[in-house]
């Protein structure tokens, strides 16, 4: 038997409004800490290399998820990245018009992983797959080790 008693007057249906405010202080982790230090201090990207399968990962990781061993070897990437994919965003997170903002997934030759960031381009049409890009960095004194230390990526 179903519940037969229903609310028939809409105003009798009550709602309770509240929020669950939260504040998080995340640690960057063992590898994340090194990656962020390298970005903050030297404006470079740190990668790590697996001694077993020889895969290089960016951002740097503590362990190789396939071989399941700790990765001790790190290397900063000197070469420019390339556009693996891109999109143009016209609305913000809450759905209000905003932009246009061009976002790219930037990868590096021979490296697994990538970085999602803003692209400093006039218009969407000027972006192409494989296009070489480099980061536009904030001044060293302003950098905090966050990805926002990079203002955007621009064509190399």
């Amino acid at each position: 038997m179903p519940i037969l008693e229903k609310i028939t007057q809409p105003l009798q249906a009550r709602h309770w409004t509240d929020s669950i405010p939260l504040e998080f202080h995340y640690t960057a982790g063992v590898a994340g800490e090194s990656f962020r230090r390298e970005l903050k201090e030297n404006g470079r990207f740190l990668s790590s290399k697996c001694a077993e399968c020889k895969t290089t990962y960016i951002p740097a990781r503590m362990f190789c998820p396939s071989c399941f061993i700790e990765m001790k070897e790190t290397r900063t990437l000197e070469e420019p990245g390339y556009i693996y994919s891109y999109t143009t965003v016209n609305r913000n997170r809450t759905g209000e018009p905003n932009g246009p903002l061009t976002i790219g997934l930037i990868r590096f030759e021979g490296v697994k992983g990538g970085i999602v960031h803003k692209l400093d381009v006039k218009e969407h049409g000027s972006v192409s797959f494989g296009m070489k890009v480099v980061p536009i960095l904030k001044e060293a004194s302003e950098r905090t080790g966050a990805l926002t230390d990079i203002l955007a990526f621009r064509p190399a």
């Binding site: 519940i3 008693e5 229903k6 609310i7 009798q12 249906a13 009550r14 709602h15 309770w16 409004t17 509240d18 929020s19 669950i20 405010p21 939260l22 504040e23 998080f24 202080h25 995340y26 640690t27 960057a28 800490e33 962020r36 230090r37 903050k40 905090t144 080790g145 966050a146």
Partner: peptide, 20 residues
């Protein structure tokens, strides 16, 4: 280098038949 985020998701919970 900690990363700090604050957010405050807001909810409107239906009280249902009994609790209304």
């Amino acid at each position: 280098l900690d990363i700090v985020y604050k957010f405050e998701p807001k909810y409107s919970w239906a009280a249902g038949v009994a609790i209304s």
